[in-house]
Simulated scan of single mutants.
Amino acid sequence: MRIDFTKMHGLGNDFVVLDGRDQSLPRMDASLAAALADRRTGIGCDQLIVLEPSLAADLRMRIFNCDGSEVEACGNATRAVGLLVGRAISIETVAGLLSASPCEAGISVEMGKPRFDWNAIPLAYPMDTHAMPVAWEELVNPIAVNVGNPHAIFFVEDPYAIAMERLGPLVENDPIFPERINVNVAAITARDAITLRVWERGAGLTRACGTGACATAIGAMKRGLVDRRVRVTLPGGPLVIEWREDEVIVMTGPATESFRGSFEVGDFGPQQ
């Protein structure tokens, strides 16, 4: 079985997109997803994206991290899918219905409403998610928010001074987060500007994380540190995050198609 794919990225956060709306796809599991995502022996990506027909929206999007785990949401991938389709669309995800629309600044995505309850993150037991009474070395008192997937946000003086390669997995896999957690370290540089690095659950350090930018902006807004529209600068570039009065998060930024190709399923896993 030969499968067509599109390689895309959002600010360097890269994806292999398999479109199952007009071709038959193999059954996707953790093993096959990880094999395709491998940068040495596969196609290589941070996340594998599978598009399927949907009865509730224009299409359904499934998201697999490079370790093979399936996750609920990916903001950069949502922008990439919006670019691939080329028009305003609704997208069904595990996290709910999203919408993506082309605009002058790239693709604008309505990411839904954030959740702050401890069991919506989820945490292992009840606590204040606005300033969690926990610490991992210099990372202290994060705010936790679910924006379709779970995030812990730490506000620090210099995100690039934090040893994310060591502390990221320590926080991600702490038992207090039963479904693991995305780890964000951010500095407020103005009322409308944030600098951010993200350790992604199941993917590690990435050049950009759309849901991380959303979660961090919302966390900063909840604490009164910034206004309701901010520019979040990640290693791969900036995203604009707005928290509308109806509490819906809107993320705007670029997406890019890198190349197209095809692969033989038998080279990466058993024939389905």
Score class of each variant (00 low, 15 high):
Gly20Ala: 09
Gln47Phe: 09
Val250Asp: 03
Asp67Gln: 05
Ala213His: 11
Ile107Met: 05
Met127Cys: 13
Cys45Thr: 06
Ala208Cys: 11
Asn119Ala: 12
Thr93Gln: 03
Pro53Phe: 05
Val198Asp: 07
Gln23Val: 10
Gly148Phe: 12
Ser90Gln: 14
Ser101Ala: 15
Thr93Ile: 14
Gly86Phe: 12
Leu55Ser: 15
Ile3Leu: 08
Met127Ile: 05
Ser31Asp: 15
Asp192Gly: 12
Arg2Gln: 15
Arg201Ala: 01
Asp29Trp: 00
Pro126Leu: 03
Thr6Asp: 13
Ile241Ala: 04
Ala88Met: 00
Arg231Glu: 15
Val109Thr: 05
Thr216Ile: 08
Val171Arg: 08
Phe5Lys: 02
Ile89His: 09
Trp136Glu: 08
Cys214Trp: 10
Glu200Trp: 01
Met1Asp: 09
Leu32Tyr: 08
Ile194Asn: 01
Phe155Tyr: 07
Gly237Ile: 03
Gly237Arg: 00
Thr78His: 00
Gly210Met: 10
Thr189Ala: 00
Leu18Tyr: 09
Ala73Gly: 07
Asn76Gln: 09
Ser99Ile: 03
Ala135Pro: 06
Thr6Met: 04
Val145Ser: 08
Met221Asp: 00
Gln23His: 09
Asn182Glu: 11
Arg201Met: 01
Met251Leu: 11
Cys66Trp: 05
Ala56Met: 13
Pro238Met: 01
Thr211Asp: 05
Ile143His: 10
Gly261Val: 02
Pro126Asn: 03
Trp118Leu: 06
Gly168Thr: 12
Ile89Cys: 07
Ala163Glu: 14
Met251Glu: 05
Lys222Arg: 15
Ile107Val: 13
Pro178Ile: 03
Ala193Phe: 01
Thr41Gly: 00
Thr93Tyr: 07
Phe263Trp: 10
Tyr160Ile: 00
Pro254Arg: 13
Thr78Asn: 06
Glu165Met: 12
Ser90Ala: 14
Thr216Met: 01
His151Phe: 10
Phe268Ser: 05
Met111Ser: 03
Arg39Cys: 07
Thr6Ala: 13
Gly148Asp: 14
Thr41Gln: 11
Ile194Glu: 07
Ile249Cys: 06
Arg223Val: 00
Ser90Trp: 05
Val140Leu: 05
Ile153Pro: 06
Ile121Val: 06
Arg223Lys: 08
Val226Thr: 15
Ala135Arg: 15
Gly168Phe: 14
Gln272Gly: 15
Phe64Leu: 05
Val16Phe: 07
Val248His: 02
Val145His: 06
Leu239Asn: 14
Ile143Pro: 00
Arg180Phe: 06
Asp246Thr: 12
Ala152Glu: 13
Asp246Trp: 03
Gly224Phe: 12
Pro238Asn: 09
Val248Cys: 14
Leu167Gly: 04
Met111Lys: 10
Gly202Lys: 04
Gly236Lys: 00
Arg40Gln: 14
Arg197Leu: 14
Asp246Lys: 05
Arg40Lys: 04
Glu70His: 05
Asp4Phe: 07
Gly210His: 06
Arg27Gln: 14
Thr78Cys: 15
Gly148Val: 11
Gln272Ile: 08
Glu242Lys: 03
Trp243Phe: 02
Asp4Ser: 09
Ser54Arg: 02
Ile249Tyr: 10
Val71Asn: 03
Asn76Thr: 09
Gly106His: 02
Tyr160Trp: 13
Gly82Lys: 04
Asp117Tyr: 06
Leu234Ser: 11
Pro122Cys: 11
Ser262Glu: 09
Ser90Asn: 11
Val134Met: 04
Leu97His: 13
Cys214Ile: 08
Arg62Gln: 14
Gly20Asp: 10
Met8Cys: 06
Asp4Met: 01
Gly68Val: 11
